[in-house]
Design a protein around this nucleic acid. Structure first.
Lengths: 208, 208
DNA sequence: TGTTTTGCTTAACACCGTTAAGTATGTTTG
DNA sequence: CAAACATACTTAACGGTGTTAAGCAAAACA
């Protein structure tokens, strides 16, 4: 009775093929190159075939978005070796920024696009994001244990830090930094990041 | 010879009509309701007519984006009456956040969407944004004159502040705050904003 | 009054996501 | 082994998008 198992396996392989192709088109040619018909062309199947493996385009993009979080987790992995909390937070910021700039399309999909996530079920979706965020919460707690970021809750601090870095890379990725001279744009980003670090380092809560 | 002048006037009126209609559809039904055919239906003209007044959809959306900046400037106007720099910055943040939450579609268009701006000419485009940014730069300078934000350049500080607030509202607008309980989400935003203010207020540059 | 210009429309192109119906092929059952 | 059924895939189509080319009627000009 190995037939149904083979079937299952083939189905999984096809799903994988579609996904890999979508991922490749996405990484190579960016967002707009990924259309159902486009993927279909690439794998030499009819467009409608994809719908036998994925409910709709959102489900497909949700899978891509998971791949993005996998990549981000990979980027974060070396942080486990950094014991000093403030240094770890610094490195984490740098790696977050680097990930965003090296994979702008993935970043858009993960954090900026509206569609593919809210339409999906809201329960398990954020498991991938949760890991990354847990990483941040841990680093904040460790920093607070050393006297930094006093007087604010861990959650507030985490959201504050995430907001800043996210905002910084978003402005760049969405091309909203044209205010600053083309040449020095990267310098401005670095400077702003350093300024933020400086503020966190030198902030001490008000004496009671 | 008033004919050509009347012609000119009528052309301007038509352009205004298209724009107003686009703006209305945009404000009422959000982003996706604004299609060329959609606007055409509303003004009871053929879709192609619009192309006689606007080069393409991007040019139209660029005009909408200007309207957004006009609204933001309106929101900022009362800040002129706030003389205390730190208080002014605080109020500015609150108003920025309020603008974003009350006009999420405009905010997306102004700061998050990729297309309509980069494709247009890069020269005069940011004049509208420049005004808002000049406002921020002014407030940063005034704060620095009072001893705040010492040790970082005005530009870095401005970008840092903008990044943070932009990131905060972007995460909410793009529905990326599902990590936090639905109920307390607004509270978290407020807390993070307060935490940031606290950090800026209590930061003192390192003594040399 | 005839000629040219203007303002607008119809038709079409090339895409898009998605659904319904149909067609082979492979599997199971009588 | 043959009939009945299920599976995997396709073709055709719907309704939508932005955009272009060609044509037409009315207004302006000579």
């Amino acid at each position: 009775m190995g037939i149904s198992e083979r079937r299952e396996r083939e189905k999984e392989e096809m799903k994988e093929l579609i996904l890999k192709t979508a991922n490749r088109l996405f990484a190579e040619n960016g967002f707009e190159k990924v259309s159902m018909r486009n993927i279909a062309d690439e794998i030499e199947y009819s467009p409608t075939t994809i719908y036998l493996y994925f409910k709709d385009k959102n489900e497909l993009f949700y899978a891509l978005h998971l791949e993005g979080f996998r990549m981000l987790a990979e980027e974060f992995r070396p942080l486990l070796d950094v014991s000093d909390p403030m240094e770890r937070m610094y490195q984490m910021g740098l790696r977050y920024i680097r990930f965003a700039f090296e994979n702008p399309d993935y970043y858009r999909l993960m954090f900026l696009v509206k569609d593919p996530l809210c339409t999906s079920e809201t329960d398990d979706i954020w498991e991938a994001g949760h890991n990354a965020h847990a990483f941040l919460e841990k680093v904040v707690l460790d920093c607070q244990a050393q006297g930094y970021l006093e007087g604010v809750t861990m959650r507030s601090a985490a959201l504050m830090i995430w907001s800043f870095v996210h905002g910084l890379v978003s402005l760049q990725i969405c091309d909203r930094m044209k205010l600053y001279q083309e040449v020095d744009r990267e310098q401005y980003i670095t400077d702003a990041f350093e300024a933020f670090q400086l503020m966190i380092r030198n902030y001490k809560s008000v004496e009671k």
